[in-house]
């Protein structure tokens, strides 16, 4: 069963231009598997600031073929940093905005 939507497939085609290749030099558990982490930016701010346990996920929310970063938090609030195509081919992210439901109100998952 194809569990991937057309939009997600388009997103994957853009951000995964090459077939996934297993890194044979660094193994999980090796602390040098990754480069030093860097804070992601969205507009003029750091992404995920002033959030209660920010939980990011990459998803093309607006269907333009570019990845967006969706950030949820413990309150159930959801924001989206829209992906922007740069002239150098790299993607940057716009300032976070509250995600909206189909009624135009903030998309919020109920909490306690």
């Amino acid at each position: 069963m194809n569990l991937i939507s057309i939009k997600t497939a388009a997103l994957l085609a853009i951000v995964c231009a090459l077939p996934w290749v297993q890194d044979s030099e660094a193994k999980p558990g090796d602390v040098s598997l990754f480069k030093s982490p860097v804070r992601l930016e969205a507009g003029d701010n750091f992404l995920g600031q002033k959030r209660l346990y920010p939980s990011p996920v990459l998803h093309d929310m607006d269907g333009d073929g570019l990845p967006d970063i969706v950030v949820g938090d413990l309150w159930g609030k959801v924001t989206v940093a829209t992906g922007l195509a740069g002239s150098d081919g790299k993607v940057s992210f716009a300032q976070e905005k509250a995600a909206q439901n189909r009624d135009g109100k903030p998309l919020k998952f109920n909490n306690w």
Binding site: I14, V15, C16, A17, L18, P19, W20, V21, D23, F34, P37, L40, G48, R51, Y53, P54, S55, P56, V57, L58, P67, I69, V71
Partner: peptide, 21 residues
């Protein structure tokens, strides 16, 4: 409070991590 998502962020063919916390 590490919330991770595994994605090929830079499109180079391997999986990176984006991590909130």
């Amino acid at each position: 409070g590490l919330y991770a998502d595994a994605v090929d962020f830079d499109g180079d063919g391997d999986l990176d991590l984006i991590v909130g916390g």
